[in-house]
C-alpha cells in the first residue's frame, strides 16, 4: 500500500528573530527585511509523519509551498530530510494572500500535480498561526479533513486513525483516504536532516508553477485581491502588571494575606 503523500510547507520568519520584526504603520504588514526565513516549525512534524509513513508503506513525499522564488532554499532544506520532490507555487499574482487565498491556491497546486492519497500540513504556522488552512484546504479539495492531530496510524483497510484532543479527552477518528490532516507538534519528534539526503537534495526534482500553470484558476480568489482578511489597524499589547509583595511571619499568614489581596482585587 504505497502512499503518495503531499506536505504543504510554509516558509516563515525565524522565531528566534521575532524580536527584530516590526510592523509597518502604513501597510499594517510585518517588516521582515533582514530576518532569516525558516520552515514553519509545525510543518516539520508533518514532514516527519510523511517520512515515517513512506518508510513503513513505501511511496513518495512531495513538498508543496506557496511563496517567492527564495522559498526554494527552504524547500531544498526540507528535501534534505528525505522528501522526494518539491513544488513551488510562485507568482506575483499570489502575493499578499491570507489563509483563504492560500488554501485555495494550494488546492489548485495539488490538483495540478494529480492529487495525493494524503495531504499533511502543520495545523498552524509559526507566524500567522490562524490554523485555518488545513480545514479550508480540505473543503476546497472536497476531502475529509481533521485538525489538531496528535496521533496518527494507518489501518489495514487503507483508512487512517487520527487522534485529537478535545476538551481534555482524546477522540480517535477513522478517516478514509484521500484526506487532509493538520498535525501538531505533539505528534512526533522531528528527525535531524541527513548529510547524504542534503547532498541528494540538489538533484531532486523541483518544479516551479506560476498562476498560469494552475488549472481553472479563479483569479478573484488568489493573492491580496482574493483575501477577505485585511489588517485595518493594530494595537500595542499592554503587558504591564502590578507587583504586590506578600508578607507574613509564616506560610499560614502569607496564605491569608494572599487571599485578602486576591479578594480585594476582585472587588
Amino acid at each position: 500500500m504505497a502512499l503518495n503523500i503531499a506536505v504543504c510547507m510554509k516558509v516563515a520568519p525565524d522565531p528566534d528573530k521575532y524580536n527584530q520584526i516590526s510592523l509597518d504603520p502604513v501597510t499594517k504588514t510585518l517588516v521582515r527585511s533582514g530576518i532569516d526565513s525558516v520552515i514553519s516549525g509545525t510543518d516539520l512534524h508533518a514532514i516527519e509523519l510523511a517520512l515515517q509513513l513512506k518508510t513503513k508503506f513505501g511511496g513518495k513525499v512531495t513538498l508543496i509551498s506557496m511563496g517567492p522564488d527564495s522559498n526554494e532554499k527552504q524547500l531544498r532544506e526540507a528535501l534534505g530530510y528525505g522528501c522526494d520532490e518539491a513544488v513551488l507555487l510562485s507568482d506575483r499574482k499570489l502575493g499578499g494572500a491570507d489563509a483563504l487565498a492560500t488554501s485555495y491556491t494550494l488546492s489548485k497546486g495539488i490538483e495540478k500535480m494529480g492529487g495525493y492519497d494524503l495531504v499533511l500540513l502543520g495545523n498552524a504556522s509559526d507566524d500567522g498561526s490562524t490554523a485555518h488552512v488545513p480545514s479550508q484546504l480540505g473543503e476546497w479539495l472536497g476531502l475529509p479533513h481533521l485538525t489538531d492531530v496528535i496521533g496518527f496510524e494507518m489501518t489495514e483497510e487503507g483508512c487512517c486513525l487520527a487522534k485529537k484532543e478535545v476538551e481534555g479527552a482524546i477522540n480517535t477518528y477513522k478517516i478514509s483516504l484521500p484526506a487532509v490532516i493538520g498535525v501538531t507538534k505533539r505528534l512526533n519528534t522531528v528527525r535531524h536532516p541527513n548529510v547524504m539526503a542534503i547532498f541528494a537534495a540538489k538533484k531532486k526534482p523541483f518544479t516551479k508553477l506560476t498562476a498560469a500553470d494552475l488549472p481553472d484558476l479563479d483569479e478573484s480568489r488568489i493573492g491580496l485581491a482574493g483575501s477577505p482578511t485585511q489588517a485595518v489597524g493594530y494595537l500595542d499589547a499592554d503587558f504591564h502588571r502590578d507587583c504586590v509583595e506578600i508578607t507574613g511571619r509564616d506560610d499560614t499568614e502569607k496564605a491569608a494575606e494572599l487571599l485578602r489581596v486576591v479578594l480585594a482585587a476582585k472587588k
Binding site: 531544498r76 532544506e77 534534505g80 535531524h192 536532516p193 548529510v195 537534495a201 540538489k202
Partner: peptide, 19 residues
C-alpha cells in the same frame, strides 16, 4: 554555499538539541 548552509543548520540543530 547552499549545501554547506544546510549542513551547518543540521549540525547546529544537532548540537543544540542533542549535545
Amino acid at each position: 554555499n547552499e549545501e554547506r548552509e544546510m549542513l551547518q543548520s543540521m549540525a547546529r540543530e544537532l548540537a543544540e538539541t542533542e549535545v
